[in-house]
Amino acid sequence: MSIRTASSGEQTAPRSPQQAVGARRRRVDWPAWRAFILLTAPIVAGLVIFKYVAMGWGLLLSFSEARGTISLGNWVGVDNYRQLFNDPRFQDALTMIVLFTLVIVPITFGISLGLAVLVNRLRRGRAFFRTTFFIPAAVSYVVASLVWKMSLFSGVPASAANSLAGLFGQEPTAWIATVDPPLYWIVIITVRLWLQVGLYMILFLAAIQNIPAELYEAARVDGARSEWKLFRHITFPLLRNTSVAVTMLLIIAAFQAFDEFYNLLSTGLAGAPGPDGRPPLVYLYDVAMGQQDYGLGSAGAFVVTLLIVAFTLAQSRLTGFGKED
């Protein structure tokens, strides 16, 4: 689940040919090898098994019929992929996650940047406000979903949202069950906002505090009076690296949304949510764990993974992300 940030690009300079030749001529340094192997073996072994073997096995399984089993052997070529792309529900899931990303990313971005600016302007009590906005990040999606589903947005008249609406004479609303108009999006979006805004506010706040005060003074001397102008011409442009990093982190997190969808939209004992509010990971969970089709589930995992990888690569190419520093 880790993401590279701005500091990650630095180590990729190719070794010069001279060095390489030099290394080859040197006598083998056995103690160094021994230490190297001892120190790297655990993580290499772990990554090989849980990433490389897993992906390899998953790839093979995606070409097998594997219903109710996780063993290989029943080869069916690209049938699983064909079935996946013929399933309108999978397309719905992809469409939904793109929409979801398009909504949640700008909103989170805007609110966390706004809060960072706000907190930065506070002199007294800054720690209090920073903690207030940040502490929801300590809460799990499960707990937040519980509060949202059972108390904040439950369909009974006593829920917070319905009590508030009641003050304006509104009838109690079934926020989660109403998909047309998609009221459940209010629930889904607000829960994620509450959980993750603070985190990105911290990132912005750190970047804002790194901007030298002289820049603002110079701008004021040049006649920039309003706060908005200062923000527009100094703060925001200087946050470019952070902004790009935040956007990328938000996109990848949004693409992998699962927890709140599962916990808010699951109905009863039946498990996975209905066709509305079924992002790719929930779709895959349903296919693999619910319908026990591990071949189809693996194929889906590869399609989703490829999408995320392609997206990440495209974005880093587009913004030159990772090249800075």
């Binding site: 073997v53 992906m55 998953g58 990848i252 693999a288 591990y294 889906g300 993974t305």
Partner: peptide
């Protein structure tokens, strides 16, 4: 070998990981 694995998002590949584990 280590860095390449960062490309692969953890949650999206839960099915293959489940299969291996």
């Amino acid at each position: 070998l280590i860095i390449i694995t960062m490309m692969v998002p953890g949650a999206a590949t839960f099915v293959p990981t489940f299969v291996v584990v």
